[in-house]
């Protein structure tokens, strides 16, 4: 897997970025990823799984491929909006790395935390490392981890988030503090395994992945991350989301 760097890291990290109308965000997130990977001398690629965005996301992805190289920015579009879970399955078919990073393309997840994910994974030979907004130290402990947090949330939003989290912690005891976060590093074989047994859709999907990982006996570490809520566009959280979340927790309680 060794790339062109004189690095002692022999792994290759594949980022799967599911996109829908991310024309404005995609170049910048890829720029940030590329900068971080080059500075840390890591071998990398980004698989862009675009669900037929009408805003020209794919054109901009092609421009990026010509700047960074077509083996680095791999565009694998799909014919329509088919959902998050299947986007990862689709992306996994084209991964050439032995580790996969999943994250959002809207800047709520910053690539600067990926080196910490990787260090924690190496230090404890973990199967999964997940980002958490709720902790101030990593688990297991890592000296250079900085406290997590959120930006752009009012008290009500924080209360709902804490309440939802408390419900899941009490009912499911998943062993990780941030279940709905979607900034994670997976060993590629582990992601392939978990994703084939996961049934939920939407953001219950992220929760089910963690609960299944624990049930299957995989090791999971946590790194605190700062979460900057959508800079552009509204992030929605209404009564419908709360109800479907509670239903999701119940399904996992009775199903896993």
């Amino acid at each position: 897997m060794q790339g062109q760097f004189a690095s002692n890291d022999t792994h290759k990290y594949s980022v799967i970025l599911p996109t829908y109308n991310e024309r404005k965000n995609l170049p910048i997130i890829i720029w940030l990823l590329a900068k971080m990977f080059e500075e840390n001398k890591l071998e990398w690629e980004v698989i862009v799984v675009d669900d037929a965005s009408p805003d020209g996301t794919q054109e901009v992805a092609k421009q990026l491929a010509s700047v960074y190289g077509e083996y680095k920015i791999v565009l694998k579009p799909r014919s329509g909006k088919l959902g998050l879970g299947t986007a990862y399955i689709h992306g996994l078919n084209f991964c050439s790395g032995d580790f996969v990073i999943i994250m959002d393309a809207d800047f709520s997840h910053h690539p600067k935390f990926i080196p910490q994910f990787i260090r924690l994974q190496k230090a404890h030979n973990l199967d999964i490392v997940t980002g958490t907004r709720y902790r101030s130290t990593s688990k297991p402990y890592l000296t250079d981890a900085t406290p997590g947090g959120v930006h752009g949330w009012d008290l009500k939003r924080k209360l709902i988030s804490r309440g939802a989290n408390f419900l899941a912690m009490t009912v499911l005891n998943p062993g990780v503090s941030d279940l709905t976060g979607s900034f994670r590093l997976y060993r590629v074989s582990v992601l392939r395994h978990i994703i084939t047994v996961t049934q939920s859709k939407g953001y219950v999907f992220q929760m089910e992945m963690m609960v299944r990982a624990k049930a299957l006996g995989y090791t999971v570490g946590e790194v605190p991350i700062t979460f900057v809520d959508r800079l552009f566009g509204e992030s929605k959280l209404g009564a419908d989301e709360v109800v479907s979340y509670a239903k999701g927790v119940w399904q996992l309680f009775t199903g896993v």
Binding site: P27, I28, W31, L32, E59, V60, Q63, L64, V67, F107, H110, Y134, S136, P147, G148, G149, V150, H151, G152, W153, K158, S161, R162, T226, F227, V228, L231
Partner: peptide, 28 residues
């Protein structure tokens, strides 16, 4: 539950840096 305004400001400056750099490389 910590607020992280510093992460927000850091991100904004990185975004403008990224935009300038990408424009120079011919990305729209």
């Amino acid at each position: 539950f910590r607020d992280c305004p510093e992460a927000y400001h850091e991100l904004l400056s990185e975004i403008s840096e990224a935009k300038n750099d990408l424009r120079g490389k011919g990305v729209s």
